[in-house]
Design a protein around this nucleic acid. Sequence first.
DNA 1: CGAGATTCATGTGAAGTATACCTTTAGGCTTAA
DNA 2: AAGCCTAAAGGTATACTTCACATGAATCTCGTA
Length: 409
Amino acid sequence: MEEKKLGKFFQKYVDKKSLFLDKSVLQSSYIPDEIYHRDEQIEQVASILAPTLKKELPSNLFIYGKTGTGKTLTIKYVSEQLMKISREKKIKLDILYLNCKLKKIADTEYRLIAQLARHFGKAIPPTGLPTDEVYNVFFNALDEKKNIIIIVLDEIDQLVKKTGDELIYNLTRINSELKNSKVSLIGISNDLTFVNNLDPRVKSSLSEEEVLFPPYNAIQIQDILKKRAKKAFQPKIIESGVVEKCSAYAARDHGDARRALELLRVAGELAERQNQKTIKIENIDEAEDKIEKDRILELIKNQPKQFQLILYAIILKNNSQKGKIFTGEIYDYYKNICNEVSLRPLTQRRVSDIISELDMSGIINGRVLSKGRYGRTREISISVPKTTEPKIIQILEESLEVERKNELF
DNA sequence: CGAGATTCATGTGAAGTATACCTTTAGGCTTAA
DNA sequence: AAGCCTAAAGGTATACTTCACATGAATCTCGTA
């Protein structure tokens, strides 16, 4: 019987006309045929990279601008075009794109170079090789063919913050050691002040050229949304005011187009799931909620065990007591939990670092604070909406297999 | 009463350790001539 | 004798620990008005 029911459900699902025409248009990986309101930047980037078509090495380039201002999109778009033309003209060109923020992939010098080398089909073990050796493998791979190579490092500020700028220095000096190939670097950063904190040598060589991506204004976002929505949805699906509201939301903080598109997509998905015929304005508020929630949950899911455990301790501690919470309290609490699940607790030193990292990733909020006679500690608060907390706890408990003891309070 | 010393709890930097993984080398075993 | 496999030796990156020192305002101390 159940089977029949389920079969019917799926049948109905398939029969139901989707609100979407092509959902991928609204996904962040989508590269449109035409990019609006970034003409100036595209032109700049293109003219900087153009020398490749004469087999000359382009200048290193540094791109900065807030999130969702089209930096990544522009680079991908321009490099796609460039690749196309160079293929036609039989110019050997290689463009590597790498996001430095990805944990466990490109967040240290070793891992980044290893990742680059893997682009050339070299197998690099996750650990064990000297970093110099990995550099060598990478050099040789580069030099195998006579090529022009452009390396794009997205969110480069994250990497430098963690591991220092020596890596970039090495990369900028690659050319002097290569015989056949030539390498040019493109760094992308969200942090506008990033270059100023670099070693002057690195600074001057990385930002031979600079391109700034200003935020979109509300009208531009609206325009972009409308054009994409046309491709993404069936006609006459979107109620009036929806696009306007989306763009207003996104423009509210620094004109983030990616956010606006995501908002629209999720709103559409929600509307579809609720069997609505159109996308209503309310759906946007729902979408806003859902996106934020999903983002946080995803982030937490991907944290290492100990990080999760500490976060778990923070949340429970926060719920069971009023007022501010401090490192010492959390550490005690954390140790208790460790005992319960018979896990060896980390030292306070390490926990302190982990708390800073959780702070960096934006799940919690900490500030160091001197309480005079009563020492010095980090005051921690949770920067996640209250409504999401139960879900977080659930995820943490699942992944930690912790039985929550029923605390009455 | 107020300037300077003291104090507390933990932040933070540097150096050391454990673990997991790598390559190289040397020895032992097998095999084929 | 040559070839192949295995285990030991020697090396690295990363996550964590240990040790030691830095911080900075509330509190204390003590000289002065």
